[in-house]
Write a protein that binds this DNA or RNA. Structure first.
Length: 339
DNA sequence: CCTCCACTGGAAGCTGCGGTAT
DNA sequence: ATACCGCAGCTTCCAGTGGAGG
C-alpha cells in the first residue's frame, strides 16, 4: 500500500506546504533583505513539538535560495551536534572545505576563525533544537559574523534564554519572532491527506481513519505522520486489507514513544540504569536512587557525575525533577512503554 | 524560629584518547 | 620514538539552599 516511503519519514520536506502561509510569509519577509545582500538579524522560531517549525524553516530557506543564486544555507540539529565543536564543524561544512580539519587536534578557535574569514554570499544557518546546545556562547560568536544569519528553532524559549548571557539575551529578545501553534484537527487531517496522496494507496484507507489519527496525535504532526507510517507498515506486513481506526489506535502508543526510544538508545549503560531505576520506582529520592544505582552496576560513577546524568535525562524530557534540595524527587515522565 | 544536613550545581583539576609536530 | 595538544568525561571540592525536626 506504500507507494513512496520517503513522504512518511520525519525529515521529509514537502514541495508545497499548507496551513502555514502566515508563518512562511513572516519568515521570508524577515530573511528577504539577504537577497539584496543586506545584513539581517537572526530569526527565532518557537512552538511546541510537531507543529512544523523545522519543516517550514527548511522549506522557506530552500525557496529563498531558489529565488536568489547567491545564497548559502545549512541545517544543523543541535541535539545531535550538541558540542561547540560539532556545531561549528557542521556550519563550516556547509560553505567551506573541512577535509583538513581533524576532530581531535584542531582547536575550536580555528573553526571559528575560518568561519569569520568567510566572505562568500549570505549564509543562512538553521540551528534546530538550539536549546539543546551545551555552550550557548557559541550563539554570540555566530551573531557577530555579519555574513551569517541564524534561524534559531526552539521548543522551550524560557530554557534557551536562561542559558544566555545578558548581551545575547537582549539582542535575541529584539529579533524577529515567528511563533507556531499546534495544528487544529482539521489541518492535521489535511496534512495527512497530502501525505497519503503523495505516498500511499488511498484504496487501503478506511473512511474517517485520517481524522482518527489526527485526534490521536493531539495537534502534533510528527506524531500523526508517525502513526500513519506505523499503521501503514502494520497493514503491509500483516497483509490486512484495510487501514482501520483500530489499527491506528493500536500503533499510536508506539508512535508516541518513538522519539523517546531514540533518545534512550543514545544513553550510556550507566545513564540507562539510572533511567530504568526511576522508571521502576515511578518516583524516587536522590539518596535512594544513588544507592540503587550503586548496587546495580560494577564500577559506579560518583554522585556528582550521576547528577550530571540526571540533568541530561531531564533535558531530554525522559524524567522530571520536582522540588528543591532535600525535597527533590525524580520521577518518570511517561507511560514508560519501552519495548 | 533556628539549626542541621541532604542535596544541588559551579569550578577547577585529572586522565585517557586521538591526533599532530619534531 | 617522543613530546605535545585540545577535548570530553570524570572526579574532587565547595558554597549555597531549603525542607525537616528540635
Amino acid at each position: 500500500m506504500i507507494t513512496d516511503a520517503r513522504v512518511l519519514q520525519p525529515e521529509f520536506v514537502p514541495g508545497e506546504v499548507q496551513h502555514r502561509d502566515a508563518e512562511v510569509n513572516h519568515l521570508s519577509a524577515a530573511l528577504r533583505p539577504l537577497i539584496d545582500g543586506d545584513p539581517t538579524d537572526p530569526v527565532l522560531i518557537d512552538g511546541p513539538p510537531g507543529v512544523g517549525k523545522t519543516c517550514i524553516a527548511r522549506f522557506t530557506v530552500e525557496r529563498l535560495r531558489e529565488a536568489s543564486v547567491a545564497l548559502n544555507h545549512q541545517y544543523v540539529n543541535c541535539w545531535e551536534e550538541y558540542s561547540r565543536f560539532k556545531t561549528l564543524y557542521q556550519i563550516l561544512d556547509g560553505v567551506a572545505s573541512t577535509i583538513d580539519i581533524h576532530r581531535q587536534s584542531t582547536p575550536t578557535d580555528v573553526l571559528l576563525d575560518r568561519l569569520r574569514d568567510y566572505d562568500g554570499p549570505p549564509y543562512i544557518v538553521i540551528l534546530d533544537e538550539v536549546d539543546q546546545l551545551e555552550d550557548k556562547s557559541l550563539l554570540y560568536d555566530l551573531y557577530r559574523i555579519p555574513e551569517l544569519t541564524m534561524v534559531l528553532i526552539v521548543n522551550d524559549e524560557a530554557q534557551l534564554f536562561a542559558g544566555l548571557d545578558d548581551r545575547l539575551n537582549s539582542r535575541l529578545n529584539a529579533c524577529t519572532r515567528v511563533h507556531f501553534d499546534t495544528y487544529p484537527k482539521s489541518e492535521l487531517t489535511a496534512i495527512l491527506h497530502d501525505r497519503v496522496r503523495w505516498g500511499l494507496n488511498a484504496d487501503y484507507l478506511q473512511d474517517g481513519v485520517l481524522p482518527t489519527i489526527a485526534e490521536l496525535a493531539a495537534g502534533d504532526a510528527r506524531t500523526a505522520i508517525g502513526i500513519l507510517r506505523q499503521a501503514a507498515h502494520t497493514v503491509h506486513t500483516n497483509s490486512h486489507d484495510m487501514l482501520t481506526d483500530s489499527i491506528a489506535e493500536e500503533v499510536a502508543p508506539a508512535a508516541r514513544t518513538e522519539i523517546r526510544r531514540n533518545a534512550v538508545e543514545r544513553l550510556t549503560h550507566h545513564q540507562e540504569v539510572i533511567y530504568t531505576i526511576i522508571n521502576e520506582a515511578g518516583e524516587i529520592t536522590p539518596g535512594d536512587l544513588y544507592e540503587a544505582y550503586r548496587d546495580r552496576v560494577d564500577n559506579s560513577k560518583t554522585k556528582r557525575t550521576v547528577r550530571n546524568y540526571l540533568a541530561k535525562l531531564e533535558q531530554y524530557n525522559l524524567i522530571a525533577a520536582d522540588g528543591q534540595t532535600k525535597g527533590r524527587r525524580y520521577r518518570t515522565l511517561t507511560d514508560a512503554a519501552l519495548a
